[in-house]
Design a protein around this nucleic acid. Sequence first.
DNA 1: AATATTACTACATCTGACGTAGTTTGTCAA
DNA 2: TTGACAAACTACGTCAGATGTAGTAATATT
Lengths: 110, 110
Amino acid sequence: MLSGDIIRGYCDTMILFTLLHEDSYGYAISKSIRETTGGQYSMKETTLYSAIARLERNGCIAAYDGKTSFGRPRTYYTLTDSGRALYREKRDEWAVTRDVIGLFMEGDET
Amino acid sequence: MLSGDIIRGYCDTMILFTLLHEDSYGYAISKSIRETTGGQYSMKETTLYSAIARLERNGCIAAYDGKTSFGRPRTYYTLTDSGRALYREKRDEWAVTRDVIGLFMEGDET
DNA sequence: AATATTACTACATCTGACGTAGTTTGTCAA
DNA sequence: TTGACAAACTACGTCAGATGTAGTAATATT
């Protein structure tokens, strides 16, 4: 199970990725991330919500009220253009990061 | 130029990797890292030295005095067995991390 | 002795990921 | 109508790693 600093800097990207496909809300985003990673990574609630707040503050996602069948109404989020742009940046940055860190790995020529 | 949080968690590994090949000291380790990445990443001095201190505290590297031709004498570092073990752990962890984060990247099928 | 150069040290700050705990808003059973 | 209950957050504090700014230490050269 991965956690913390290892993933640091990519929590936001995971959320953006999830919203790339369809609008969603907190709990569902978290579930989607868990599923995407096949259970290898599970984002903590606080991490998720603070990342969402940050993304909204930065204008990368926008909120709107949704319905629910039970319990408190959900807040849905949708990607903005700048959110989409940020995703692309992060994706490109990742390609570089991955290769650079890979230079320090031996016996790992996958 | 990569920096900070992107690389976070792998500074230690870069240092361990460098020492895998031969004993070295602060400035030279930093230089070696810059060269390994082809100038794509340059570790800040403070980052380097605090990582070195951490690794030594944890028994992953051991220090000994070295000579110098000019200026203050260097402190050389050598990998310990547990440092070598930590490197292997980090290397394996990286393989997983890389694949998991990769799941969130589109149009990036390199 | 003054200076230049290499090699660090000290210390404060910032940020992002968490832990623990509590709150809000709705449905439903009785 | 009210109280249990569940979903969906919110508040707040902590911690570690990377970094900025600045200063110190040791040694050879002039």
